[in-house]
Design a protein around this nucleic acid. Structure first.
Lengths: 116, 116
DNA sequence: CAATCATATCATTATTTAGTGATATAATAA
DNA sequence: TTATTATATCACTAAATAATGATATGATTG
């Protein structure tokens, strides 16, 4: 059997991608593409509820996709690494070509989830 | 409210990333990094069950991440686009730096899922 | 110190999704 | 035609995860 890679590495990589694989987290990451934002700013920008944003930020922070900088009672978040933005951009470009297929894929919910 | 992007685009992008966000699908994508493989080859390489592989391939195919070429009773699959491989590589590199955080992130299961 | 503001935590619920086993389809071989 | 091989489909179950509401923590202001 042509074993492809060690399972732990696969599990880690899947976890990394899962950071990007949810519309709410993506909305948060998009909101950070232009620089640091406080939690309140992100709540405003995304329309998600505050606890929901905090939960997702916790996930993104634990996974190292964003970093937090407390300043007084605010906490500013930003993308942790240039490559996070690169991944987002590459996905944008890929999506431009495969969007139709993705859209028509019925295996996962196509829900709009436009609000919290 | 600084609306970040249209919700449909976010949902599509999330769906795209979900293709990468599962250890089994990643194992399949990894198996295709070196070129086309039949379903049987992929089953061998990943150790996943045949119906499971077919299900995931269906998902990846619908989403445009892989393409299928039937040849007799075999069906060969390959990565559909150079950028799929680029995304995998970028994730590899990012993971090299943030792996510790991802590993320690307890919000999602860290299960090894080494076999089917 | 009391009030307020910004963020985090947590248990619960509802929804999604992965995997399995049984079976269908389709191509080739005997 | 019958058997065999390769792949796909599908209903079902079990597990994982997102969102919510209530509440806690911690900083600042009066």
């Amino acid at each position: 059997m042509l074993t492809v890679a060690n399972p732990t590495a696969l599990a880690l990589q899947a976890k990394l991608f899962r950071g990007f694989a949810d519309p709410s987290r993506l909305a948060i990451l998009q909101a950070l593409r232009n620089g640091a934002r406080s939690v309140g700013d992100i709540v405003q920008a995304t329309g998600l509820s505050q606890p929901n944003v905090s939960n997702h930020l916790g996930c993104l922070r634990d996974c190292g996709l964003v970093t937090a900088s407390p300043q007084g009672r605010f906490v500013y978040y930003e993308l942790s690494d240039r490559r996070v933005e690169q991944l987002l951009r590459l996905a944008d470009e890929l999506l431009a070509d495969v969007a139709k297929g993705v859209y028509e894929c019925t295996r996962y919910r196509a829900e709009d989830s436009s609000d919290a």
